[in-house]
């Protein structure tokens, strides 16, 4: 079960060697190696991620937290995950301008998701105030 750490480290080292060899010849094919390695490592970790999210859902349901709030938190984490992946791929290819635009897009989408919660908080505060 805990051998996954060794697996990931070995896979990363082998893929790094291959990527360095390919980048000398063809830069774009070396990029594909790094993208593929990233996807495979994330896929190895997705099973554990599912169990963690399940436990979070269980705890939230036991604590009577509104399921909307937890789903917004999960959405924010997912958007951060995807945009981080995309921006790192772009930065690896030397396109740091596109990478920062991807990050900006993710931040704006996260902001638009969290503004309703902020509005609800302000509503609560206005109700408490006389």
């Amino acid at each position: 079960m805990n051998m996954e750490a060794l697996q990931i480290a070995g896979l990363g080292i082998v893929a790094a060697v291959i990527a360095v060899i390919l980048k000398q010849q063809k830069l774009e094919l070396g990029m594909y190696i790094s993208i593929t390695t990233g996807i495979i490592i994330l896929m190895l970790l997705i099973g554990r991620l599912i169990s963690v999210v399940d436990i979070l859902n269980y705890i939230a349901s036991r604590a009577n937290v509104d399921s909307m709030h937890l789903s917004i938190v999960l959405k924010v984490i997912g958007i951060a995950y995807i945009t981080e992946f995309g921006s790192q791929v772009c930065r690896d290819a030397g396109e740091s301008a596109i990478a920062s635009k991807i990050e900006l897009g993710g931040k704006i989408i996260i902001l638009s998701l969290t503004v309703p919660i902020l509005a609800a908080l302000i509503e609560v505060i206005l109700q408490i105030l006389p």
């Binding site: 774009e28 996807i39 495979i40 959405k75 997912g78 995950y81 995807i82 992946f85």
Partner: peptide, 25 residues
């Protein structure tokens, strides 16, 4: 480049679909 791109795009869509279903996006 096109052949490898076709292989990689399949995996990328798979990963994004997984993340979408886990994080309820």
């Amino acid at each position: 480049i096109v052949v490898v791109l076709l292989m990689v795009i399949d995996m990328i869509s798979n990963l994004f679909n997984n993340i979408k279903s886990i994080f309820q996006l």
